[in-house]
Nucleic acid binder design. Structure first.
Lengths: 154, 154
DNA sequence: ACAGTTAAGGTCAGTAATAGTCAAAGAAAG
DNA sequence: CTTTCTTTGACTATTACTGACCTTAACTGT
């Protein structure tokens, strides 16, 4: 189950886990070969799943000896980082940004898959019951729930 | 007897029963095919019978490899009273009503003083940032936070 | 140095595969 | 007969994947 993109994502995350310093360097063409797909599929995975918002930095170089470097950034203390993420939520929050934030916190190990699902479900239920201002309500709900979780687990 | 929607509901519930961890993943189009109906019928069944209030979490993804995932989360008997209390919160919630709900739950031993303070703080923070519809936001926030707490403690 | 060749990676638009929404029509219940 | 629930389908939105074409860097022979 899961799409090709999901598998490539998992593969890269495994590599990051096994790496020394949460950063890896790989060859786009080789990786594409491993999964028997076109090289641009790798770009697709990187663009959709390894964004800065989710806590990843991707660098690359073309030409001979080219490479793609992926790092899972972790500057500060996880909790501080999470709190800053929450502060960064403004007065509105799209579904997409919510997903990025949840994915980010899950990658940091601060949220379990079950917690993510519960949050999604609650937010969906609540926001489906109003016709206007869904993004505003979502911002409040996500901030509230995540703040509660972070606060009561620390 | 029973409508098509009833049969689909029963079918999904059977699948959940037979599943490992009370959660299943299915394809909307395939399921619609099984019952020879239009795909949107599935959405109708999900929207009317598999709500969070009834203890179901529904997630989905569109696009290639899309899916619908349904999980049944059940709360312990002690908590059904609390869940009913939550259902009773309508689309608006005044501060007074919120206070009486919190007091009630604290008396039942379902909320600690610390949790009550935390909830009050979060609700106050969030509702102070908007000028209109405070009671509407409060209803959503309290429902969300209490549902989360009840669910994750059972 | 320079030009040409080779070896990477990047972009973008198009296609396919899903699921969601909404309003209108139909059926059932009161 | 009116109201509520069910069913349908046309239209919309999202996600995945591919391939043709573009850009950049290193190497190589003269």
């Amino acid at each position: 189950m899961g799409t090709l993109a999901d598998h490539i994502e998992a593969y890269i995350k495994r590599m990051l886990q096994n790496s020394e310093n949460r950063s890896i360097e790989l060859s786009r063409a080789q990786l594409a070969d491993v999964f028997s797909c076109v090289p641009s599929q790798i770009n697709y995975v990187l663009a959709t799943r390894f964004t800065l918002e989710r806590g990843y930095i991707v660098e690359s170089r073309r030409g001979g000896g080219g490479y793609i470097r992926i790092a899972h950034v972790q500057v500060e203390d996880d909790l501080t980082h999470a709190v800053n993420l929450l502060k960064g939520i403004g007065s509105q929050l799209s579904e997409q940004r919510m997903e990025s934030i949840l994915a980010h916190l899950r990658d940091l190990g601060l949220l379990s898959p079950h917690q993510c699902r519960l949050i999604r479900g609650i937010v969906q239920q609540e926001s489906s019951s109003i016709s206007q201002g869904k993004d505003v309500l979502r911002a409040s709900l996500v901030r509230a729930l995540l703040f509660y979780i972070i606060e009561s687990e620390s």
